[in-house]
Design a protein around this nucleic acid. Structure first.
Length: 824
RNA sequence: GGGCAAGUGGUGGAAUGGCAUACACGCAGGACUUAAAAUCCUGUGACCGUAAGGUCGUGUGGGUUCGAUUCCCACCUUGCCCACCA
């Protein structure tokens, strides 16, 4: 056996990667006697190069998959590519190549890099979302949604990224900028396709309760995003026309303090309201200005509140008061009703606006700490609770109670109603790009928007399309694609040229993995019923809202189609932390990227895997550290050398004769117990590995005795360490397992070791004595010593006596096998 | 402004009511070596002390408890998500 070296490591890693591929070691077949386990990581965009984030994500998943395999589960562990999207188009523009060619070449490179890491994928199930066999089912789902009224087209102001030249979903706008290129997003009036995710808002929120094994912050983020709030809609009346003007509020208790009403600049009533009045010109100029501003500019943090009076008045239903109607850009059309009642005394924004524009104020809630204060003295809005004043029959009620009383009263009197308001908006899926799934719609001058019939799917992406990055969607230029006959009336018609957002593709890929070759249907119902839901899903926190929310939506939709029999796709979720270098996220622009490929060339995949698992718990951020790699290397060296030098085939009885034997066996059994617990309970790979190091230290100490009769015990300990280490560093362990006399039997299919509870027991334990909370002595006592025995031992110790001399022992607390606490 | 995490040696981290700093990195000393690397051994929270030993110590302040890194309250700092959301 050769010494452990870079050369040797590469030989071993290549050898075993080839064996796994040739023998299809990780092929998953449904319907066996074993319990199933579906382990999935978020599939990558095929950039051609894996980065440390991928390495970390997939290594964590690989340990889980291999561990479950050794525990006797039938494991499904697939891999594929989220292959549509803009980078391929950008590359095409830059290098004048075809996006498809570029993507498939990247996929080949990516696969090779993944294989170099030794991940236990069933490669027969590989999918790429840009394959027509895949994206035809995107089109199929879209048409089903259209059929059920869940896909629709509407004209409205949408998020537009000027750099990517396409629309974006709300979820893709991060702090008013494009999620991909960080360019500030602007608003544009366009007719676009939407998916009615809001139809599932209630269930998407409610079912979060079922996700007990999801990180609580992901659940909180989704809750936040869906944003259910209870409030009241109140119907004001326009004085001039008598038309209804509905406002939304969460503070119906302050209705008697409303001194004006404010509309969003986009409010539909507005044009009519100001028509023919002296204010029309000015108001319309203001509206135009607001519309031209990007949302981020319009909402920019300063406290100045721009607005303008419409010249019209509204009537407050609760007291008949006439109050002015204003418009302001701080009121959002997309939330509530796009109109608010302003209560400047009890809402800070309204307070600032009223100051800016000299509008009147009235107090309706009394500050119990400051009951004498009058309106003119207010320095800011009073937003806390208190008793109602100036509120007619509701005077004297506490405002929390008044909220209910007033809204119930208004409901009875038909002045308004209690409502639920959602923050979640429908999902805009149209993209004005080439490299995506064509939306299967044909526009006919006679028949309107006609769905492409099922038997004509997929609507394929045309090849040889000029991608210049200019002049809108490349598909628009493609006459053969655009000009078609209407499927209904056979007249000349035009094809939809928008493609789908790529998040559509990734919203159901986990289902396709169950039967990737199904060609007459989206997936095989039987296979999905067997494998789904995903038992363990692993990926980055950046998908906490986007991908995870969309996937939950798709699952519920497909369930309602009768294709699935469960509500949630992902049973357990782990969000791994980022990989940092010098305290910063690795990125090309910072120039602090560590290339996994280079690390593998130097240390091998096993060393990289071990380091990344040992350096931090999976959910925490991980600081890259070159000397940490040396540490991992050193440990693997020691395991290698120990097996090479100490392991000798021998026969005999494993008889425990002395304390050293007992200690070795105890440590061995304890390691099995600890690692078996640490992997599934909280993914504590770092402590699992530290226990393996402790066991290795123990083995080395033990083997120094050089007593041939103990060889059986030594062998057993070495076999155990190889088995326990196998999910973490599979190549090394395969090689060692083979050397240990298991030729042709992959360690991936070896049985996970069991521990013996009896071997964990000790005869004596160390018990600590505390006096008034401070440790003052340690005693070696028999296991399970009684309180009486402990009293005798401890209270006769010279040192303890020194401390308690001349004082009363008030309490004597015993924690069995751990400590005694004496209070004097 | 709202929500959610987190704060422990020189460093990554361990301990979730019971000996704070497991395991590892780094550093220092030693062995081997002509020498270096590698490897092995020893030490390594701070302060006082020759030592035995003592005092302090898990962001800050308070509380509960025989006992708190762990539980509770307030605050500070950092990170993430949301945010003129009425």
């Amino acid at each position: 056996m050769a010494a452990y070296s870079t050369h040797e490591i590469h030989r071993i890693e290549e050898k075993w990667q080839k064996i796994w591929a040739d023998q299809k070691t990780f092929r998953a077949l449904a319907s066996t006697d074993k319990p199933k386990f579906y382990c999935l990581e978020m599939f990558p965009y095929p950039s051609g190069k894996i980065h440390m984030g991928h390495v970390r994500n997939y290594t964590i998943a690989d340990v889980v998959a291999r561990f479950k395999m050794m525990q006797g589960f039938n494991v499904l562990h697939p891999m594929g590519y989220d292959a549509f999207g803009q980078p391929a188009e950008n590359a095409a523009i830059k290098n004048k190549t075809d996006p498809a060619q570029w993507t498939y070449r990247c996929i080949d490179q990516m696969r090779e890099e993944l294989q170099r890491m030794g991940f236990s994928y069933d490669w027969d199930r590989e999918i790429a979302t840009c394959d027509p066999e895949y994206y035809r089912w995107n089109q199929w789902i879209f048409l089903k949604m259209l059929e059920k009224g869940l896909a629709y087209k509407k004209a409205s102001a949408v998020n537009w990224c000027p750099s990517c030249e396409t629309t974006l979903a709300n979820e893709e706008v991060i702090q008013d900028a494009c999620w991909r290129c960080k360019t500030p997003v602007v608003q544009k009036e366009l007719e676009q396709w939407y998916l009615k995710i809001t139809a599932y808002a209630e269930e998407l929120l409610e079912d979060l309760k079922k996700l007990k094994d999801w990180p609580s912050r992901v659940v909180a983020m989704q809750e936040n995003w869906i944003g259910k709030s209870y409030g009241t809609e109140i119907d004001f009346k326009i004085k001039k026309t008598g038309e209804k003007l509905t406002v939304f509020t969460t503070r119906p208790d302050t209705i008697f303090g409303a001194t004006y009403v404010v509309l969003a600049p986009e409010h539909p009533l507005l044009a009519k309201l100001v028509k023919g009045t002296g204010h029309e010109e000015k108001v319309m100029a203001f509206v135009k200005k607001a519309a031209n501003l990007s949302k981020s500019l319009r909402m920019s943090g300063d406290e100045r509140k721009e607005g303008i009076f419409t010249g019209e008045y509204a009537i407050n239903p609760v007291n008949g008061e006439e109050i002015p109607v204003w418009i302001a850009d701080y009121v959002l059309m997309e939330y509530g009703t796009g109109a608010i009642m302003a209560v400047p005394t009890h809402d800070q924004r309204d307070f600032l606006f009223s100051k800016e524009h000299n509008l009147s104020r009235r107090m309706v809630i009394q500050d119990p700490k400051n009951p004498e204060i009058i309106v003119e003295q207010l320095k800011c809005a009073y937003e806390e609770s208190g008793k109602l004043i100036n509120s007619g029959r509701f005077n004297g009620f506490f405002n929390e109670e008044a909220k209910q009383k007033i809204s119930q009263w208004m409901e009875r009197e038909k002045m308004g109603r209690i409502t639920v308001n959602w923050r979640l908006r429908d999902w805009l899926i149209s993209r004005q790009r080439y490299w995506g799934t064509p939306i299967p719609i044909i526009y006919c001058p006679k028949c309107g928007a006609v769905p492409v019939p099922d038997d004509q799917l997929p609507v394929g992406l045309p090849k040889n399309v000029q991608i210049t990055g200019q002049g809108g969607s490349p598909l628009l230029q493609c006459k053969d694609f655009v000009n078609v006959k209407c499927p209904r009336c056979q007249e000349d018609a035009r094809r939809e040229t928008d493609t789908m957002a790529t998040f559509f593709d990734s919203s159901w890929y986990y289902l396709r993995f169950c039967s990737p070759q199904a060609d007459a249907k989206i997936f095989d119902k039987k296979d999905v019923a067997y494998w789904m839901p995903v038992d363990q899903y692993i990926g980055g926190i950046e998908h906490a809202i986007l991908h995870l929310l969309y996937s939950r939506f798709f699952t519920k939709f497909l369930r309602d189609l009768g294709l699935l029999n469960f509500d949630e796709p992902f049973q357990r979720l782990l969000t791994q932390g980022m990989v940092l270098k010098d305290g910063e996220v690795m990125s090309k622009s910072r120039g602090n990227v560590v290339d996994p490929d280079e690390v593998i060339s130097r240390y091998g995949a096993d060393t990289l895997r071990l380091f990344i698992l040992f350096a931090a718990p999976p959910e925490d951020q991980l600081e890259w550290n070159d000397s940490g790699m040396d540490g991992a290397w050193k440990f693997l060296c020691r395991v290698w050398n120990a097996v090479e030098q100490k392991y000798q085939k021998t026969v005999g009885l494993a008889e425990i004769q002395d304390d050293d034997d007992r200690e070795l066996e105890r440590e061995r059994n304890f390691s099995i117990k600890k690692i078996t617990d640490d992997i599934p309970n909280g993914f504590k790979f770092n402590t699992a590995i530290s226990q393996l190091m402790i066991l290795m230290n123990r083995i080395e100490k033990y083997s120094l005795r050089e007593q041939p009769s103990k060889q059986v015990l030594l062998n057993r300990a070495l076999e155990t360490i190889v088995l326990l280490l196998a999910p973490f560093t599979p190549h090394l362990c395969e090689e060692l397992w083979e050397k240990m006399g298991h030729p042709g039997q992959s360690v991936a299919h070896a049985r996970w070791p069991k521990f013996d509870e009896k071997a964990l027991k000790k005869d004596s334990v160390e018990v600590v004595a505390q006096i008034n909370g401070k440790v003052r002595g340690k005693f070696e006592v028999p296991v399970d010593a009684s309180e009486a025995d402990l009293r005798e031992i401890v209270l006769q110790d010279a040192k303890v006596l020194q401390y308690i001399e001349g004082k009363d022992v008030k309490k004597f607390i015993v924690v069995p096998n751990k400590l005694v606490s004496i209070v004097i």
